[in-house]
Design a protein around this nucleic acid. Structure first.
Lengths: 340, 340
DNA sequence: CTGAAAGCGCTTACAG
DNA sequence: CTGAAAGCGCTTACAG
């Protein structure tokens, strides 16, 4: 290993002082172009690479932010993560990524490690079992700004979809179609689940439509989970007019399980879902889904965090941004007709 | 902002020297438990957070690795990224993530930024237009070890699927079914594309099966791309026995476009693909796909990189690992019967 | 505009 | 086992 080239070496080679070289690296206009040229040439010749880590130490900031999501196999989360990257990258930040895999302990471990690495801020899609107080304590101790994404806990900056509203739009659509019973399937206990259920009930129950969403209908957020949840429902001898899946991924399993039992989605039973990932439009028949616009959630979340980083952060009150959902009606509900 | 608590503060509060405190943080066994206790108590009371960045500067390493992928909406890439995380996280590394969005210039910018941030190593799924020499120069100048994933360029450590072999398995399957013409659709010019085409030709042409894969059949790796590519083929009045899509994502568009033209996949035309993501098994009818095992690619890539980081790295010759593919036969091909 | 000095928060020999 | 000193590679006032 060749010994590392430092700014000191560069300044010597260019015949200037270290501070001058430092100013040149950072593109200061206080240095005459002729001098800057000499320095840049020396850098090229020596193969100098800027050690931003050292600079960061001195400046007590890192131009780094931590993004913690549960996973990215779910395209909703993947799009969200890429949107965060887009915004923060353009602002000169580099992202530390961590996957909690929906394990609260792992999440806390990741947070701790990122804080030790001096992240300037944190963007978190919280794991299911997250203890909000513990998280708050952890980040406050290090006074690291944090913005929560997609799953809300009071007291934190937050960006997410307006789940209640989206579910209401869907509920109204289903009741207009004539559905009398709606099963809400899949998903784990989480704020977003509760919000979606709330929206469905609020829009359906006043019109006399039954909403089934007991605990035994919960499932992992996977096709297998959705299939199993539907199985549990059917095994009780219950056949709803419509199935609303917790998310597109869950709905995939619902489609499969329906067919295994000889039912055709969109004809024998209406099926709808949340997220409107590629999966929804790609199904046969195409599936009605409530679009949550993960790109907007991610981008807006990154923006809120940048705001915190700019100002003397502490004073701003809790920031909240809810992304307006949109109901994408497709044949999985549109072609369904009430049997009565 | 409270002034930052340093090890110095901790050592004073605990009545020991700074070096002692430092050893305690790192869990050295050379410090008697009684002393260590005092130090830990002081840390808790003061709310000390370890500044790993400072430690890294002193130790001239960062315990950080850079992972650059093109994107993660494609579940193949998402699974690969999560597998990399799994391995490196367990080894105590934290990941900087970057998305090149398949833009070579953006990729180089990200590489530069990560090198400035002193990553210990780099794992890259190279962007399409990557200039391998430029990349090699860039990382060599900083002597940062690098492992390439999924898209190969000679001279680099590499882990990827055995694309040629996987395509051969698929080709043999199709010719055994009696297909006489096979269209290879979608994808952008890249090593993996060339390898897949090579495997198809190697297994099909000797048996007299025609392989169509002209440039106009290329497309972006998206459902829309696949649909458009199939459209271009049909508009030429060509109807192959089988369509092989570059990947599951492309195949999704192929399914859609076939139906738009009144053809049923698996009955009127055989359809197969690569990657075997959730998409493949989730299609109706389920789609034959060559599994590339992204988790294995990611995990193995991370392992190769760790190896480079352990040793005096420079001396090891180029490392290569090819993950054995597996052909998942499903009804999109299995139920198809030759018209002749 | 430039240079010498101090400091960011840690770790690493080196004596005791 | 502990302590004083030097150093990782930068940046930041502060004089000139």
């Amino acid at each position: 290993m060749a010994p590392r080239i430092t700014l000191e070496d560069v300044s010597k080679a260019a015949g200037v002082s270290r501070s001058t070289a430092s100013l040149v690296v950072r593109g200061s206009s206080r240095i005459p172009e002729s001098t800057a040229m000499k320095v840049r040439e020396a850098m090229d010749q020596l193969g100098y690479v800027y050690n931003r880590q050292a600079a960061n130490l001195r400046q007590s900031r890192s131009m780094t932010i931590g993004l913690i999501v549960t996973e990215i196999i779910n395209p909703y989360f993947a799009e969200l993560a890429m949107a965060v990257d887009q915004i923060t990258h353009d602002a000169g930040y580099t992202i530390f990524i961590g996957y909690s895999r929906d394990l609260a302990d792992r999440q806390h471990e990741i947070v701790a490690s990122m804080i030790e690495r001096q992240v300037d801020g944190l963007l978190i899609l919280p794991a299911l079992g997250t203890d909000p107080e513990r998280l708050a304590k952890q980040v406050n101790a290090a006074s690291v700004p944090i913005v929560l994404l997609a799953r809300r806990f009071p007291g934190f900056d937050y960006v997410g979809s307006e789940n209640v509203q989206g579910a209401q739009m869907l509920g109204e659509h289903l009741s207009a179609l004539g559905a009398r019973t709606v099963a809400f399937l899949g998903g784990r206990p989480a704020p977003s689940l509760a919000e979606r259920e709330e929206g469905l009930r609020a829009s359906l129950e006043p019109k006399g439509v039954e909403v089934w969403s007991k605990e035994e209908l919960r499932s992992p957020v996977s096709p297998e989970g959705g299939a199993a949840a539907l199985g549990r429902l059917f095994d009780q001898g219950k056949l709803p007019d419509a199935v609303v899946a917790y998310s597109d991924i869950v709905a995939q399993g619902v489609y499969d399980e329906l067919r295994r039992r000889g039912l055709e989605p969109g004809r024998d039973i209406a099926v709808a879902s949340f997220d409107d990932t590629r999966i929804a439009a790609g199904q046969v028949p195409p599936m009605t889904s409530v679009a949550g616009f993960p790109q907007q959630v991610g981008a807006k979340g990154a923006e809120l965090l940048m705001t915190r980083l700019d100002d003397g952060n502490a004073d701003i009150p809790t920031q909240l941004a809810l992304i307006e959902p949109q109901l994408k009606i497709r044949s999985s509900t549109a072609t369904w007709r009430s049997r009565s």
